[in-house]
Design a binder for these strands. Structure first.
Length: 849
RNA sequence: GCGGACGUGGCGAAAUCGGUAGACGCAGCAGACUUAAAAUCUGCCAUCCUCUGGGUAUGCGGGUUCAAGUCCCGCCGUCCGCACCA
């Protein structure tokens, strides 16, 4: 058979994907004599089609998984589906399809798309969270957490659409209104299920210190999210001495700057007072006409209601502070009440200005110590205490210590720690999620469903014709006998937050017995995940919840590990230019897809009319901006290897990757160029060695390995390009033929189909295995990694003036002498002795004249 | 509002420890091959000047150092997350 002059990607992709499947190449072997490598990419939500972000994510993980196989590891590289969630219910409402059918159809088409990428995945471990064999085990774990006291019920607020009579997600609240009804959203208090993540606040914070292979920014974000703060909790007495309420502050040092006390609209005192004050009741109503998202609360106009009551200042009973109900004080944080110190807190200052409350400086801003504070910016910097009686002259920290000591001595308060982290509300008033395995019995109360009766399966018949939770109005499903007394009872109709599903799936991938969530022995072998890869958008919630579940299961004695992900990598987004035309003032621009556009160096035109369009900024691919490129079309045109190669080229993986037509074409050309080069594996010339090329080859073997290992794919790509250039330029030799063969192995993790095709074309005597999928990574010869000559820069006063090539490893004196002997340097020195000479061996000489 | 990051040629970037800024790729320009096109190959490609050399350049302004893209201080710009989107 003669070798094709062009690489036929489409046929090769299909051929090798079939061959790997037939050989079961990527099944995990569970052979204990090899080191294990658990490579995991965040599993996708089955939205219907894969997008370029998925391609990038899975290409990266796949390169690492294949590389680990080549370096002798037993690799676990699984795939599954985060299959519960809101879009399925939306589809049910809009298109009349059942969420289950919609989801399973999506999974089937996305699985087919992913397989076209040629991923080295053990598909026998595939799971979907919407299937009872998964969520039933999740219900079992939920009952275990309940038994361990980590599940509670509490009241909390949800977004309520008063027209549709349904709970809304934050995402469904647009400018304070329900996305379908357009009604103003209200906050509504519901009794809900919570997981007690706050029990683990301290260890989740401490544990961050052990995560050396996590990005610093993610650790910092989690640290701030958990938000440990030390402060003072104390009680205000009402003016006259009646018991008042507790407040918490992180700035007890500013107590002499207090000018009011403020409580949350949800504070019990506010609710009690509202019973006798229609005005206050109206005000509280107004505060509740607002979503629950933090951003909305923080950016809302400051509003307050003067209750007319006063409290005594704890340091001076004769000093009375007015009590206000205030919209920016949260019931969830601290005690739901604060004292306001406008001079040194921006929110308090805005509030004080609006309502004409006094503003007293108690921290000196440099020389500025005047008690009357002017300006619109609160002073939050360091400084000495002023206008604060016994605290005057102290630093902020000293004053904090002094106040806390006095409060504890006088018994009106105590030093305490509070957390920003709140317990995790897992109740969702929705159909398409894991049913919470509890029954409400009029006689026995809240009763857990016995494990023997699990799974509590979602009913297939559900009515989506009206908004709201179909489980709640289901005619039969919710009515059951109480597991305790056998009397009439009703099921819990809330389902679990989908973040619960993704908090333990990495365990189920490793071990999925039918009668329990996982086998601890098998978990011991595989966990933690060695490399986890996913989007930065999961930096806090998903990653914190998964850490919490791992620690909770550890506490229950079910697993040994405390942290699920030994190493974390957060990848950037795939972006693209936008194409649009203005539709006139006040109207949104009309966007066009890349398919409708001809792009050239100067700009872009619309193919249908040949007239120009505006080329907009490079932003994240999104349907609304139409700057989306469909992976399937790219695979049809260029094949999997070119797509994978482009995804790994140029941009560092943690940064955004701008997709471009020119870029994928460049990747395609390189695939073809390699194919031609791989055809040269038998051209030995006269059979001689090529020492220089040999060095470059071995440096590339070591360099590409190091780059892949550290996920520096763009750097590995650059090194492969450079090596290909060097091989092409080299004269035929035994070394060059060997380099061509070795290059097949170096590109194999990234371009597996091309590598298999080229490998198969080698004479059998020249390959170690039948398939590249089973081949080993080449071994770099340490002797060839070091050059014997180095180019040394010669600077004068820090500016480059000359370079010289010297044997590597020369001592400082010899290098200095060589530099000073250079004619150019001698000329510039003009015979004068240099003032100072700095020599960095094998790098540079800096002469200070 | 709070929290986090990022900023280097026309573009994506590299520079791993404070030590020759711009490797590698994309786009572009010139040439070779070709009846022609595609494909392929070769060369050029930060910027300015008085051009065998020299100056200026890593968002802007300062600082430390023999030496700063890298360290410190202050700005500006862009992006991401904010607990019921996944």
């Amino acid at each position: 058979m003669t070798r094709e002059t062009r690489f036929g990607a489409l046929a090769a992709d299909a051929r090798w994907q079939k061959a790997w499947e037939a050989a079961n190449s990527f099944a995990t072997t569970d052979s204990a004599d090899k080191p294990k490598a658990y490579i995991l990419e965040m599993f996708p939500y089955p939205s219907g089609r894969i997008h370029m972000g998925h391609v990038r994510n899975y290409a990266m993980g796949d390169v690492l998984a294949r590389f680990k196989r080549m370096t002798g590891h037993d690799v676990l590289h699984p795939m599954g589906w985060d299959a519960f969630g809101m879009p399925a219910e939306n589809a049910a409402m809009e298109k009349g399809v059942h969420p289950g059918n919609w989801t399973r159809d999506n999974i089937a088409s996305m699985r087919a798309q992913l397989k076209r990428l040629g991923l080295a995945i053990d598909w026998s471990r595939e799971l979907a969270t919407c299937e009872p064999d998964y969520y039933g085990q999740e219900q079992a774990l939920f009952l275990d957490l309940f038994a361990a006291g980590l599940v509670t019920r509490k009241h909390s607020y949800v977004n309520w659409d008063p027209v549709d009579m349904t709970v809304l997600a934050n995402e469904q609240v647009i400018d304070g209104r329900g996305w379908r009804s357009g009604a103003l959203v209200e906050k509504k208090k519901l009794s809900q299920w919570f997981l007690k993540i706050t029990d683990f606040a301290d260890e989740l914070l401490e544990g961050l210190g052990s995560l050396d292979n996590w990005p610093d920014k993610v650790r910092l974000m989690q640290e701030n999210w958990i938000g440990k703060s030390q402060g003072l909790e104390f009680s205000f007495r009402m003016a006259g001495g009646a018991p008042g309420f507790d407040v918490f502050t992180t700035r007890p040092d500013t107590l002499y700057g207090a000018s009011f006390a403020a409580i949350s609209p949800d504070h019990p005192l506010a609710e009690r007072l509202a019973k006798d004050s229609p005005e206050l009741a109206t005000f509280i109503e107004e505060c509740r006409r607002q979503g629950t998202a933090a951003e909305q609360i923080d950016t809302a106009e400051k509003m307050g209601f003067d209750t007319g009551l006063s409290v005594e200042h704890p340091l001076d009973p004769n000093w009375h502070l007015p009590v206000w109900v205030v919209n920016y004080v949260l019931m969830d944080y601290g005690t739901g009440a604060i004292f306001g110190c406008p001079a040194h807190d921006q929110r308090d200052l805005d509030f004080a200005h609006k309502y004409g409350l006094p503003v007293h400086r108690v921290i000196a801003d440099g020389d500025e110590t005047a008690q009357h504070f002017t300006g619109t910016e609160a002073y939050t910097g360091p400084g000495k205490l002023v206008n604060s009686h016994f605290l005057d002259g102290m630093t902020i920290d000293e004053a904090k210590t002094a106040i806390i000591a006095r409060a504890e001595h006088e018994e009106w308060g105590k030093g305490t720690t509070v957390w920003r982290l709140r317990d995790w509300g897992v109740s969702r008033q929705r159909y398409w999620g894991t049913p919470i395995p509890f029954v409400h019995c009029p006689a026995c109360g809240m009763v857990p469903v016995p494990k023997a009766q699990l799974p509590v399966v979602l009913p297939e018949d559900a009515d989506f014709s009206v908004p709201g939770n179909p489980l709640d109005r289901h005619p039969t499903w919710k009515h059951v006998a109480c597991p305790g007394c056998g009397g009439e009872a009703v099921r819990e109709t809330d389902t679990l937050d989908t973040f619960v599903d993704s908090s333990w799936y990495f365990l189920r991938f490793a071990s999925a017995p039918s009668d329990k969530p996982f086998d601890p022995e098998v978990i011991r072998r595989w966990l933690p995940v060695d490399q986890y890869i996913g989007g930065i958008e999961h930096a806090i919630l998903h990653l914190l919840y998964a850490r919490f579940w791992t620690r909770a299961l550890n506490k229950l004695g079910m697993i040994d590990i405390r942290e699920p992900f030994a190493s974390l990598f957060t990848q950037g987004m795939v972006t693209h230019e936008t194409y649009s035309r203005s539709q006139g003032e006040g109207l949104p621009p009309l966007f066009f897809t890349p398919d409708e556009i001809s792009r050239n160096a100067d700009g872009a035109t619309l193919e249908s009319d040949g007239a120009p369009v505006d080329v907009g900024r490079v932003i994240k691919m999104s349907k609304s901006k139409k700057n989306v490129v469909d992976p399937d079309a790219i695979l049809d045109q260029y094949g999997a290897d070119a797509a994978r190669w482009f995804m790994l080229s140029d941009s560092p993986p943690e940064r955004d990757l701008p997709w471009s037509e020119a870029g994928i074409e460049g990747a395609w050309r390189f695939v073809q160029r390699l194919w031609r080069l791989f055809g040269d594996t038998e051209n030995m010339g006269d059979g001689a060695e090529d020492k220089g090329l040999s060095r470059k080859l071995h440096q590339a073997i070591a360099g590409v390995a190091a780059d892949v290992e550290s996920l520096g794919f763009n750097k590995a790509v650059a090194k492969i390009h450079a090596l290909a250039n060097d091989i092409e330029k080299a004269k035929p030799s035994a070394t060059r033929a060997e380099a061509c063969r070795t290059l097949i192995l170096l590109v194999a993790p990234m371009m597996p189909h091309l590598a298999e095709e080229a490998w198969a074309a080698l004479p059998p005597s020249q390959r170690t295995t039948a398939m590249v999928a089973d081949a080993a990574w080449p071994i770099a010869d340490p002797a060839l990694l070091i050059d014997d000559e180095v180019t040394i820069a010669i600077q004068m006063a820090g500016k480059l003036r000359d370079t010289m090539t010297l044997p590597k490893g020369l001592d400082k004196d010899a290098v200095e002498a060589a530099a000073l002997a250079r004619p150019r340097i001698a000329e510039l020195l003009g015979g004068a002795a240099p003032k100072k000479v700095i020599v960095v061996p094998d790098r540079l000489v800096n002469i200070v004249p």
